[in-house]
Amino acid sequence: MTSAPNSYENILELNDLQTSFFTKDLEVKAVDGVSFAIPKGKILGVVGESGSGKSITSLSILRLLKEPGKIVGGEIKFKGENLLDKSEANMRKIRGNEISMIFQEPMTSLNPTFTVGQQISEAYKIHQGLNKKQAKQRSVDMLKLVGIPSPEKRVNQYPHELSGGMRQRVMIAMALACNPELLIADEPTTALDVTIQAQILDLIKDLQERLGMGVLLITHDLGVVAETCDYVAVMYCGKVVEYTDTKTLFKDAKHPYTVGLMKSIPQHDQDIEGDLAVIRGSVPSPAEMPKGCRFAPRCPFATELCREKLPDLVTDEEGNQIRCWIYSDEWDGDPEVNVHAETERTTESY
């Protein structure tokens, strides 16, 4: 970090990123103008349900999208430089080296025909030009770092010989091998049991603090966000609807979708009398995307304005961002509306 060409505050900055999937006669805007930033050495959580575009966003950053997905606009600034301007060869030098990624399914994310050691070594060989022996030694060190017992033995094992939690540790070891400055973790604990999830989240947080890297944590689990992240971006239908620091979000969420999401999750540490609050209906299909606010058809507060015009993502003086008409001067509904109290009363789902 001695001779950075540009000075930058944020390790990663997305500006109006747009990613679409093209079918014969339809453009599905999976990521529809997403902007957020990860300050150096911080953890940003991106939450959203399926179809929110959170995973596509993460794949777009490393430019790992497969056909027919395509980045159609915006900027991805990593250390101040736009990754979309880089050649494929230069991108390869960044992948697994400066930006690493771990995925949801530890069971299928490792190659079944290579040993754990071979797979971690590969990163060292590609990015640091180490020989086989050095790379293997470093792999053993890495396995030790991520808390795998008897790493000298494990390094020669195949993925199927390891448990799910162990495999995710191997994935983390592989991702962190070259000391990346940014780690993208796409639902890293979703496939794991809670006691193992606790281990893995603990590990990611610990390593993040020790290595000082930025982390982009994609998840659908608000609990995971609350316990690990510094900042949160809530996504809905390809757009960020709310961005704030974690504390503020959980104390005072503003967007009706965020509030609805929080109220609809039954918690293990509190009782809820009667029915759960629900968000009516379901996520609209890409073919019938509402033209106004994407959430309007499900929102208990939606007005004519919401249905007709898409609100902007507005930044307040504290840097928090919100995409909702309720908080604008143009709001045409009840000026005294209480999002939290009203949401609680929405329990009928149809």
Binding site: T195, Q197, A198, D221, A226, T228
Partner: peptide, 10 residues
Amino acid sequence: LLSAIPSTDV
């Protein structure tokens, strides 16, 4: 098991 579940109570 209970303590391992992430809580949204910040």
